[in-house]
Design a protein around this nucleic acid. Structure first.
Lengths: 246, 246
DNA sequence: GAGTGGTCTAGACCACTGA
DNA sequence: CAGTGGTCTAGACCACTCC
């Protein structure tokens, strides 16, 4: 690294061009073209492209080309408000509320299954062998996947209720919990960041890059009624939390 | 990618070994050793190591070796509580509170300067040419840098006050704002994730990997008195937010 | 100096996509 | 089919760290 590594120089040049001259969806020159232009080996070119990919600037598509990423920013509403009762009563689940506020068309697909609580036993205060209901969802904004949410609830609560169906009905799972007498009284969210694994990469249609991981724990009194693990591309998501000072 | 790419296989094997047999600080075999063991080329070995590095599992140190990363270090207290007045009155700035709660020894270094508000003019409701006071801090846990915080305040408020000194005194900047009649009444935090740039990599002593970015906006009534941009390694930090349901 | 990781090259074959 | 990116090899030189 005498002055700056060649691959970083190249990444810098490309990054500047993307920001100033290209727009979302534009194709970058192919690797052979970049090799000719920068007079560098293919590995070096690819190292530069990999950096841009990890930053979320570009997407590399096998057999097609390298494309400038759409800005794709989903701003999640303030966490307090988006889970408020008043929103639920307007039939808005949290994600639908985000969509309405920002004018994208939401859609989602759901899979539901049951499995032993295992690692989640402790947090729910049940036995590891007791079953939990797992609701695995992919949320989409204008058709593009923007969030994976895996929600777990003790089956003791969900058994025989709409919570075990694919469509939980208006207001979403939290509204159903309320109907059952397990209305959430307190929420806690734990936020961290990680690199996307293969699974998330595929599901979120992203090619590497950082991931935001939010674990939301919903309490009903002193018992945990839902643990929701949400993963979204870090470069395209903003979470908002607000509170009044004491 | 017939079944699984060789570099992914190797990464999987190493990941499993790290999780099951090695502990934080242990050294991995050197690249030549891994080449011999897996009978793969150096590029392939390095591709596997790069994945582990991006996941935050290992740190690569030039001229020394590859080492297993220490596990998650810092859990930030619930945001509401860590900024509470009662904590400030115990002389605890937010970060010191995190430290006390988790038993690490905190330290920090500060640089202070002034510059035109520019992009921050709008949020503060001042002119772009008006100056802001910038407080740039590096927070350390047991000597290791864990957070970069760049705080901006309108100079109109800070001029001639301890806020322009390196040491703001007990309770930190928020306590001084309160003394000046600009006590925060509301906070908002906007959370996103991104890849670490060169600057952050150096400052945080991390070799790539995702970064958590938290922008905290402090309001005093209807005016913004502080904008604090905090960056921490995503793999080593957890933010916590809690609130009561309505 | 010996050993480590960081960068780079030149070339090869494979897998995917679209015309 | 031709063109794209994905993977892999074998070898080279450099920069850093420790002895």
């Amino acid at each position: 690294m005498s002055a700056a590594a060649r691959h970083k120089e190249i990444a810098d040049v490309l990054r500047a061009e993307i920001d100033s001259q290209l727009t979302a969806g534009d194709r970058l020159p192919s690797e052979p073209e970049l090799i000719a232009r920068f007079e560098a080996s293919r590995s070096t070119i690819r190292q530069a492209l990999a950096a841009l990919r990890d930053e979320g600037k570009v997407q590399m598509r096998h057999g097609i080309g390298v494309f400038v990423s759409p800005p794709r920013v989903v701003r999640r509403l303030d966490s307090r408000e988006r889970l408020s009762k008043s929103r639920r009563e307007r039939n808005e689940s949290a994600f639908l509320g985000d969509a309405a506020a920002q004018g994208f068309t939401p859609s989602s697909s759901v899979r539901v299954w049951f499995e032993p609580a295992a690692d989640f036993a402790e947090i729910f205060g049940i036995e590891p062998a007791d079953e939990v209901c797992v609701r695995d969802r992919v949320m989409r904004a204008d058709g593009q996947p923007v969030m994976l949410a895996t929600s777990r609830l003790p089956r003791r609560i969900t058994e025989g209720t709409p919570l075990e169906k694919v469509d939980t009905g208006p207001g979403g799972a939290l509204a159903r919990l309320e109907d059952l007498g397990y209305g959430a009284t307190r929420y806690e969210e734990i936020v961290s960041a990680a690199m996307a694994g293969d699974l998330e990469r595929q599901s979120l249609d992203m090619a590497r890059g950082p991931l935001l991981h939010v674990r939301r724990i919903a309490w009903s009194g002193d018992r945990v009624v839902e643990v929701n693990d949400m993963k979204m591309p870090g470069s395209g998501y903003e979470l908002r939390y607000g509170w009044d000072a004491d």
